[in-house]
């Protein structure tokens, strides 16, 4: 009997420790990002680092301005959301409101698979298909322009398109489940008042599912901000103003492409880039948690 009580207690302690691992992990990651990310802020100066527009880490007089890097991340994410959300939302509308059982399950499976494809494959296809297309477009637009730096197609626009595609599955699946949770009585009432199915969808169902759709969009923002490898393969490798045909670096690709060889202050600045990304992601996470809490209430 005593042994049994002991085992019960032991089991409870062990599962409690398992549950605490997540807390330790989050605390350790946060602590390390701050500890490693702040020294460069002090050495370079907060303003010069965050709002500096020149990035020359290996020059004789190095400059560590990451303003354009931050801007590229934000612009890329925003544009990808603008492009990906309408497509994703309409696909979700099809799945929840129009699809028959069989076609619906085919489309759903396709979306699930899209989510499972590794990001390097998106990157590889972007390199092989998007970049050459962009290159041709670039030549048409900037023919004879001596000011423009030609990028070979690896540019902001390619990054935006790849990101828009990569957030699709997230937006679709979250929007779909929130559209599906709208009660049928709402649809019936709207139809009975003489609205067509399309009017019902856009005037009754989507407004009712708004908070869930917004959650999907925020999740998409998180995914787009954090995506590294695919973007690194298609966005080119120079720190630039985020214009469509400029080769750009985002917060994530900056880390991926320079962490391998950076040393000294350059390396510390890359940790600061990581910290900036972490802060953005934490803001997104907090918004999400708040939305969930409100949804639960």
């Amino acid at each position: 009997m005593k042994q049994r009580a002991f085992i019960e207690k032991l089991a409870k302690t062990i599962v409690l420790i398992c549950a605490a691992v997540a807390i330790f992990a989050v605390c350790a990651i946060t602590l390390y990002m701050i500890l490693k990310g702040t020294p460069a802020l002090k050495k370079v100066g907060v303003y010069d680092l965050l709002f500096g527009k020149v990035w020359k880490p290996t020059a004789a007089h190095p400059a560590y301005g990451i303003f354009y890097i931050i801007l590229s991340s934000l612009v890329g994410t925003a544009a990808a959301i603008l492009l990906g959300v309408p497509i994703g939302l309409l696909t979700a509308v099809y799945l929840s409101e129009m699809a028959g059982k069989k076609t619906g399950s085919i489309v759903s499976s396709a979306v699930e698979l899209l989510a499972a494809i590794p990001s390097v494959i998106y990157g590889l296809l972007g390199m092989m298909l998007l970049n050459p297309m962009m290159y041709r477009l670039e030549h048409k637009i900037y023919r004879g322009d001596s000011q423009h730096v030609f990028t070979g197609g690896a540019n902001m626009l390619s990054a935006i398109l790849v990101l828009a595609i990569m957030i699709l599955p997230t937006v679709i699946s979250v929007s779909k489940s929130s559209l599906e949770s709208v009660p049928n009585s709402l649809r019936a009432a709207s139809l009975a008042l003489g609205a067509t199915q399309e009017q019902t969808i856009f005037k009754s169902v989507i407004p009712a599912a708004k908070s869930g759709i917004l959650t999907g969009i925020v999740l998409g923002i998180g995914r787009a901000l954090g995506e590294a490898m695919a973007i690194n393969m298609v966005a080119g490798g120079a720190v630039n103003i985020p214009l469509p045909f400029n080769s750009v670096r985002t917060l994530t690709t900056q880390i991926v492409s320079e962490m391998g060889y950076a040393g000294g202050l350059h390396r510390e600045v890359l940790f600061t880039v990581g910290l900036v990304l972490y802060v953005f992601i934490m803001i997104v996470n907090l918004i999400l948690l708040n939305a969930r809490k409100r949804g639960a209430n």
Partner: peptide, 25 residues
């Protein structure tokens, strides 16, 4: 609440941050 918050947060951290932390720690 704290454990669930931590789990949700972990799920939302992008892999490049995990990579940085793993390398450092």
């Amino acid at each position: 609440t704290i454990i669930e918050f931590a789990t949700e947060t972990l799920a939302g951290i992008p892999s490049i941050i995990f990579g940085l932390f793993g390398m450092m720690f």
